[in-house]
Write a protein that binds this DNA or RNA. Structure first.
Lengths: 137, 137
DNA sequence: CTGAATCCTTTTCGATACTG
DNA sequence: CAGTATCGAAAAGGATTCAG
């Protein structure tokens, strides 16, 4: 391989992985990151059953803070994954719903969750063995 | 943090998404988080072409630090997604390779990356519109 | 070469308080 | 009801140094 005493320090910021996502690299990474985000997954997972209003979402997604719910919804809205509909009523009412695009993302994410569920035991087993090998002895 | 000693545990049973993470919840979330992790995705993506040694990985995954490469590899190894093979040679040589389990995860993640690639333009469009609507002020 | 350990900066996120 | 604004704790992550 490299026997020529020359070290390529280039390391240009051509993107973390030149041979994989390649093309639109940066944006792809952002999207994948978002798809793997805890709150994103839980929010769109909750919305799959139909539109919900802000407070209902907050109650359904146990443990989420107002700050994170708002932030997550803004991101999803910006990417066109959910819609925000405000009704000009006396007690304010705002409903969030998955878009078609959001639904397709949900499918992909669900596949990942299913994978996790399928191999849950196997992974737990590996972890237990790894931990016992490194901790004990 | 809370002095009242009551910390919300993932008691999802009462929410509308009872059919989702629910059961093994905690572990599932960890696994999905890992699958969405930037470095995890890049590392297993790089390993799909075959085993690589530490330094080669570091060069292939442009921008990763030693600290993160080591950390990521340990996690993957612990979960049984990659194997670590050390050869007792004078210049130490260590090779990392995807396991069968790791390959199946790669498939799921690749699906996600493909989704991102497919809808890249659409998302960019949504973002641009959203940003212009909020910037206009 | 393959890491482990340390330091230190950046980012993330929960808690809290306030508004239309 | 549906948020926004701010603060501090905590985690993530990069750079650097040392070791087997």
């Amino acid at each position: 391989m490299r026997a020529d005493g020359e070290i390529e320090r280039t390391a240009v910021r051509s993107g973390p992985c030149a041979r994989w996502p390649a093309e639109q690299g940066e944006t792809i990474r952002q999207i994948v990151d978002r798809a793997g985000d805890k709150w994103t997954v839980l929010v769109i997972g909750t919305l799959q059953h139909g539109p919900l209003r802000y407070t209902d979402l907050q109650h359904a997604v146990t443990g989420i803070s107002q700050r994170m719910l708002t932030h997550t919804l803004r991101q999803l809205q910006r990417d066109g994954l959910v819609t925000r509909t405000a009704y000009p009523e006396v007690p304010p009412r705002v409903e969030y719903a998955l878009t078609d695009l959001g639904t397709t993302l949900l499918d992909a994410v669900t596949a990942l969750v299913d994978w996790a569920g399928t191999h849950h035991d196997e992974i737990q087993d590996h972890r237990a063995r790894y931990d016992s090998e490194t901790t004990a002895r």
